[in-house]
């Protein structure tokens, strides 16, 4: 496997996004239930261009980065698996013929719902009840930020591939 500029960019984005949503956004006064899932946006952006298997792979690795940013999750490994499912579902929206932004946003919403359901299921197993508003706020803010970020991420990805840097 060779190291490409696209790979470096992707890794840097995931690490920075994970640190941002754990550390900086709550410090800047963004309420916890409105912090967008920035890592998921990056995963969906690459998944929707390349398909479900690639999406699942990237989702799993990105999930591990999120898990290892302190506070380290417990039990270890649950977040990567949920993110993998999110990437897989995002990749199902991949079409060679259609490359509209609407499809990418739809993929993000679907992946967000999958991640939300995964978290809700584990909370219900552990605690017996779940607050709906918390997860829905997160989903809404993720899609809203995705509307702005996805065009940029997709354009950068395509430009790098076109210049044979990806």
């Amino acid at each position: 496997m060779r190291v490409t500029l696209l790979g470096v960019c992707r890794t840097a984005y995931v690490v920075v996004a994970a640190l941002l949503s754990a550390t900086l956004l709550p410090r800047l006064g963004v309420p916890e239930e409105w912090v967008p899932d920035l890592v998921l946006i990056g995963v969906v952006a690459t998944a929707v261009l390349r398909g479900p298997v690639h999406g699942a792979l990237v989702g799993l690795v990105a999930g591990w980065v999120v898990e290892l940013v302190p506070p380290v999750g417990s039990p270890l490994g649950l977040t990567p698996l949920v993110m993998m499912l999110g990437g897989l579902v995002g990749g199902l929206f991949h079409r060679v013929s259609s490359r509209t932004l609407g499809r990418a946003v739809l993929a993000l919403a679907a992946a967000g719902v999958v991640v939300l359901l995964g978290r809700a299921a584990s909370v219900i197993v552990a605690e017996g009840s779940v607050s709906a508003s918390e997860g829905l706020g997160r989903l809404a803010s993720t899609v809203a930020v995705g509307l702005l970020a996805l065009p940029v991420l997709l354009a950068v990805d395509r430009a790098l591939v076109r210049r044979r840097l990806g």
């Binding site: 302190p70 506070p71 977040t79 909370v123 605690e127």
Partner: peptide
């Protein structure tokens, strides 16, 4: 507190 996270099992973790 430098970081916080909603745990997948409910409750909250802080750093």
């Amino acid at each position: 507190v430098v970081a916080s996270d909603i745990s997948p099992l409910g409750g909250r973790g802080l750093t």
